[in-house]
Amino acid sequence: MSKKNDYDPSEIQKRMGMKAKNRISNTVIYVVLVIMSIVWLIPFFCIVFQSFRVESTWMAGYVFPQKWGFDNYINLAKTDFWKWYTNTFIIAVVVAALQTVIVLCMSYTLSRFRFKIRKGLMKFMLVLGLFPGMLTMIILYRVLKDLGMTQANAVPGLILVYIASSGMGYYVSKGFFDTVPKTLDEAARIDGATRAQVLWKIILPMAKPIVIYTILTAFMGPWGDFVFARYISMNTSAGMNVAVGLQSWLSLDQINNRYTMFCAGGVVVAIPVTILFLCLQKYYVEGVTGGAVKG
């Protein structure tokens, strides 16, 4: 930088102009971000507030309760809500464990091994995934019904449905494994490890981010599934999950008694899941940005 630039008045003016422009654009951005944050968070504030409303249980058009209280939360116990909650929780835990195993098996194999039907298999699963998922509901329901895993007994049925085809969701994990250099596997094989030992002793320990990501997404899935849970529980309250159950509270015949309880139930469901997600957020982000986009 020559001396001229530092002391030349026109240069100083130019740099100050740039700084000012920068500051203005930054301020605009901050304003936009603040507005966005408010908009994004408003619904959640509203639902929390409305859950504390005691004076009425129907859907009123205002947010702040006139009378505050925990009634809605307490009344949850008088309904099937906790049954739904337990159902969903059990499903989520079991699915989280089993689905992770299946997905990791599938994605590791497709990433590391080269066998004859590999490409064909991947194309086949791609095509299979183009079918709308709920098309299979009808027949699965009838078969599960014969096995006694529907309606009140929907939990095992749902677990089976979720994990059985979970192998098709290998993309993100495979993308991750593809970034692990194959020479690591090769070095271990030369060192005397079988391929099973390579997976268990070398690859998995260093795949912590993607394992956590897979467990997290597998756990969160059942909390939000509506279609399958609705179909397989087939209007039997004892077999519903929280999504189906809470949605039923918003139907025309129930909403007047249940609206505020819906809010309370929603908060109860949201809090643990959200906290879990925020704690593991960085793994989720790593997984999404790392693997999801490789396609």
Binding site: W40, C46, I47, G224, A243, L246, Q247, F262, T274, Y284
Partner: peptide
């Protein structure tokens, strides 16, 4: 912003 991902979608949508 990521909160909307964390909170189960059905709650957000229904509400």
């Amino acid at each position: 912003l990521v909160l909307t991902i964390a909170i189960p979608q059905f709650i957000s949508l229904l509400y």
